[in-house]
Design a protein around this nucleic acid. Structure first.
Lengths: 229, 229
DNA sequence: TAGGGTTATTGTATTTTGTACACCAAATAA
DNA sequence: TTATTTGGTGTACAAAATACAATAACCCTA
């Protein structure tokens, strides 16, 4: 991440809250800062926006440099622009969150250099800058969005069990869901394709695998329905 | 509104979608640009953010300079930062919307100078910059928020009839609502105080006046309920 | 190979919420 | 006084949310 010159007047950056899910709690990918300000502290990955770069493009670049991933789900949350949020000058930042499948994450040279690692979203220390606040707002946005659009699947492998899907929702929404009611509701939208495969390598009855069907969702929306969980 | 120097490298501004309601359709307050670029076209009121000014403060300043109003409801929507959105250079803008009571609006010198006027939100020409897109996104945001938080009242005078409130929701949501069901639902939350006053000067049975009770809403939230319409 | 351990899968009854719908009341104007 | 206009109200039905428990299918171990 390039750093802000100490004599700049104003600049803008993007910061990216990269969410991941590994079956337990919801995770966020943080980097450990190697230079002042906030040297050694954990921070959201981000960078200044290049002169000929859209905001989304900058956020995608930050994500790709760190994770090697392209084409992942990305959404802007809002701008953070408190006058003193950056100790070296006036920098406003545009916050994005993205949803990645943790198994796709391949550490890049940038992620080694920046000591990137996954952190449990509920056990976070004080982060650099106003990143705790940014993270908090992105999480609120995610909680809201995950119930109104079929974006949770972005955090799961292409084939998943209904229990995995339920646990994902439970960890994002921080609530417990009833198994039978959850299945009834998610299956009633008819957006999941039931596969002829089952879980393997588990010491109990293996669960059926499902995958999200993008085409069915397109028709679902076209017919005036909206995802709601 | 100060203009961007042609030799700047990058800057950021705020733009404010000021909504108003006069009983008919939802309105938005626009200014007619007096200088290039887009001279003569209608645009959202906005300005560059001052070096020592928070984003919200800048949006409040723009609003106050134009309308004389302070302390109105204001909410950030998101940043707009397409590379070529401003013809004179790289300017990203942070979009806000605010909700004002049209009867409180007192034209200021700035609003005369900028030929500010209310426009029907559904009959808009092409606006300057990317302001149609900004307006569109702010309207979508308003539609969401007005059903999840008691912010519609910000567009009405302190004392209003249930029919006025219903018409407000109908014009924001662009849908018709059933009178009995609407009243049942809004009254069931018990957030409105029924006053001992009635409408005056109407050629039919006068309606009871109500006012939104902020204190009741505080307790409502405290008890874990959430506004939902 | 039988039994124990673990998770998967399924339906129904009840409560709550949403929706559809029509008549009388109270004021002004002619 | 009568016509016109909007205000105000309740009930029956449909849909959705919720609460809840027994059997099935697999692996492991004795």
């Amino acid at each position: 991440m390039s750093e802000v010159d100490s004599f700049f007047k104003s600049a803008f950056s993007v910061d990216n809250v990269i969410f991941g899910f590994d079956g337990g709690d919801l995770k966020v990918l943080l980097i450990q800062r190697g230079a002042p300000p906030f040297k050694g502290m954990w921070a959201l990955p981000g960078d200044l926006v290049y002169p000929n770069e859209n905001l989304e493009t900058a956020a995608e670049r930050v994500l790709e440099q760190l994770t090697g991933l392209k084409g992942v789900y990305l959404e802007q949350v809002r701008a953070f622009g408190a006058v003193n949020r950056h100790p070296l000058g006036r920098v406003i930042t545009i916050a994005f969150y993205s949803l990645v499948k943790t198994k796709d994450f391949v550490p890049t040279p940038a992620s080694f250099a920046q000591r990137a690692s996954w952190h449990n979203i509920h056990h976070l220390d004080k982060l650099a800058f106003d990143h705790n606040e940014i993270l908090h707002d992105c999480l609120i946005q995610l909680k809201y969005r995950v119930r109104m659009a079929p974006i949770g699947f972005e955090l799961l492998p292409p084939k998943f069990t209904l229990t995995e899907l339920q646990q994902l929702y439970e960890s994002i929404l921080e609530t417990e869901l009833d198994k039978r009611n959850f299945r009834k509701k998610i299956l009633s939208m008819n957006l999941l394709e039931e596969l002829d495969e089952t879980q393997e390598g588990v010491a109990h009855r293996p669960a059926k695998l499902y995958q999200f069907d993008q085409e069915r969702y397109r028709q679902f929306v076209e017919q005036g329905y909206s995802f709601d969980l």
